[in-house]
């Protein structure tokens, strides 16, 4: 078995088992056995669905750490975005110049592209509208908000994930 597929299987198993454990809420032996059996069955039967050729490497542990770093950056951006929204919504006269712009989209993996779109929606003043393999149409409350995406912290965090993936 290829090394990154083996890593992926192990990570997937422990993720599923951990998720089961959170939902089951008890430590009894019966629950643990059912959880192990269910996790193994899911890994065996969905193996070829989850690990298609290009997607395999992303499940290794180091990449998961990068995703966690992304989550931290995202929380900070969400708070900034909300301060901006509160300012606009509660100001007596709303002064915004909304518009669309098509910008470059540097990510390769489909999972990352989906998350990238979601992250753009959650960052200050921008909303992902539609997207293709190399570009993404963004709606901004002001055009400066759209300028802030390229080279911003979110994009850096995603590029770091893809860098780690290639190793």
């Amino acid at each position: 078995m290829e090394r990154n597929i083996r890593n992926g299987v192990i990570t997937l198993f422990f993720t599923l088992f951990g998720f089961w454990f959170v939902l089951a809420s008890t430590f009894s032996i019966a629950e643990v056995i059912i959880g192990v059996v269910a996790s193994v069955l899911i890994v065996v039967y969905s193996f070829d669905l989850i690990f298609d050729k290009e997607e395999t490497s992303g499940h290794s542990f180091r990449v998961l750490l990068r995703y966690f770093a992304l989550f931290v950056v995202l929380v900070i951006e969400v708070i900034k975005a909300n301060v901006a929204v509160v300012k606009i919504v509660l100001s007596p006269r709303i002064s915004i110049k909304p518009g669309f712009r098509r910008i470059r989209q540097p990510l390769k993996r489909e999972l990352n592209q989906a998350l990238y779109g979601n992250s753009i929606t959650l960052t200050p003043g921008t909303l992902a509208v539609t997207m293709s393999n190399d570009s993404i149409v963004v709606h901004g409350l002001t055009m400066e908000n759209i300028d802030a995406i390229e080279g911003g912290p979110i994009q850096k965090a995603f590029l770091a994930i893809e860098q780690e993936d290639k190793r």
Binding site: V85, V86, I88, L127, V129, L141
Partner: peptide, 16 residues
């Protein structure tokens, strides 16, 4: 309620 069109409204609801 206050923002002018669909897109601006989506900004307010999703983020907040």
């Amino acid at each position: 309620i206050r923002l002018p069109d669909v897109f601006c409204r989506m900004h307010a609801t999703t983020k907040a």
